[in-house]
Nucleic acid binder design. Structure first.
Lengths: 249, 249
DNA sequence: CGGCTATTTGAGTCTAGTCAAAGCCTGTGG
DNA sequence: CCACAGGCTTTGACTAGACTCAAATAGCCG
């Protein structure tokens, strides 16, 4: 738990509660993601091998190259997953939120890093223990395969974006996709409250901060979005946004 | 089986033999990939639900958007998987060869297209039947989860490449990675016999044909590789190639 | 009210894309 | 066996979209 790899350090995690089945009762992710595949008694068993953990904003909780001893399931908050090059270039491979499972992209060691964008609460599972859970509840393993399938689809979509789309198309794709995840409407326009900075966006979309800013300006001038303060973006013309993101016009 | 989606058409496939257990005896993929997870008698059962199929060079055998009724396991040959944008831009998401499993990135429909780069032989499994196999042999399902995990790692590595690496770094990464897959040595130099064209390479690496050509010229001038005829590339300085591909030099 | 960071905007540069043409290979057919 | 057609690859010249560097602005937090 105190492993030091490169210049990074495994973040100390704050254990709030362990082994309590009631921890699922008010979990944001209870009815999505992995846990939704379980009946109440199965969930009880799963909870018995889970450790609930809180991670403060900005804290890294997975370091690439560290031995992959644990899986995580996010209950609350958003985190970024990323891969770095030796000279500091970073590619964010995904943003994860409530219900998302972390740790599939690992063999003996984690093949990615993870850091909280907001205060994050998650359930941590020991890999060895989870294997025992699989043996008892094949439904979980099957669900995990579905999760992996879905992540593969997302990953390939992202390859298309990174390899072939223009800056404006990338930003439109992202906003469109994020809109599907967390949508709150207000006066007809969908209002996105993004947990990430422009820099995170740039590292996710294979661009620079400046290009992100200019692309948003372009979409704003076209009346597709409105850019507000504090990472708020309103989607004024959803159909147009989708079309741009999918390179249909 | 005669579905027409967009302007593409499901390729007619040539059934060579069906339901014969002996078909595994001389399969290139018998001891790699999915089938390696099985004991002989389990394999016998798996073979009973497999259809062996031959696909000619250049023929597409999966169309994005078609109902995903089948999984495939490649026995021999190489194919490309890809996603297209409406205006023709294409991103190849991966090359698959003997032992590779195709079809994980699908829900109700395939989320990618596939086309043979060389004559391909594969085993085709009906999705419903494969589910029955899972129930009987959990080992296969577990192996499939490992396969999906591994593909996720590869996909994220590719995102790093597409989002953050330069043209020369991308080409070096590719040659380095391909060298690990199929390596035949000759006079100290590893000789790669690529089944894909420069255009395929470009569509895989998020570049254009011309840029691929120039990047190869750069690596050649640096004495890292030798570029021969008929898609043959010799790796003269493997260490340097790896370093360039991982942006360490 | 500052101090700090994040974001936007501007000016100039550079990497990779586009357009064009020549060279090579392959495979075919005389 | 050689000539030719067609596709693939390489090279050159120019362009463009995104990056870099720099500075101004805006927002957040104590």
């Amino acid at each position: 738990m105190q492993n030091t790899i490169g210049s990074l350090r495994r973040a100390p995690v704050n254990v709030v509660a362990g082994g309590v089945p009631e921890l699922c009762a008010q979990c944001d992710a209870r009815h999505i993601g992995l846990c939704d595949a379980l009946h109440d008694d199965d969930l009880h068993f799963l909870a018995s091998v889970a450790q609930q953990v809180s991670i403060e904003k900005g804290r890294g909780f997975v370091t690439e190259g560290d031995p992959a001893r644990q899986f995580f399931n996010i209950n609350h908050g958003t985190a970024k997953l990323f891969k770095d090059l030796p000279d500091g270039r970073r590619q964010i491979t995904g943003f994860v939120g409530a219900g998302d499972f972390i740790g599939l992209a690992a063999n003996a060691t984690y093949m990615f890093g993870a850091e909280a964008l907001e205060p994050v609460q998650l359930c941590s599972f020991d890999r060895a223990e989870l294997r025992a859970v699989f043996a008892r509840f094949p439904a979980i393993e099957r669900r995990l395969l579905d999760v992996a399938s879905h992540e593969l689809i997302i990953a390939q979509e992202q390859m298309l974006l990174l390899g072939r789309k223009t800056a404006v198309e990338r930003v439109a794709s992202f906003l469109d996709g994020w809109g599907l995840r967390v949508a709150s409407c207000q006066g007809g326009a969908t209002r996105l409250d993004l947990p990430m900075t422009r820099n995170d966006l740039a590292e996710y979309l294979g661009l620079t901060v400046e290009t992100i800013s200019r692309a948003l300006a372009t979409l704003r001038k076209q009346g597709v979005v409105a850019v507000g303060a504090d990472h708020v973006i309103s989607i004024l013309n959803p159909a147009r946004l989708t079309a741009i993101g999918q390179a249909e016009g």
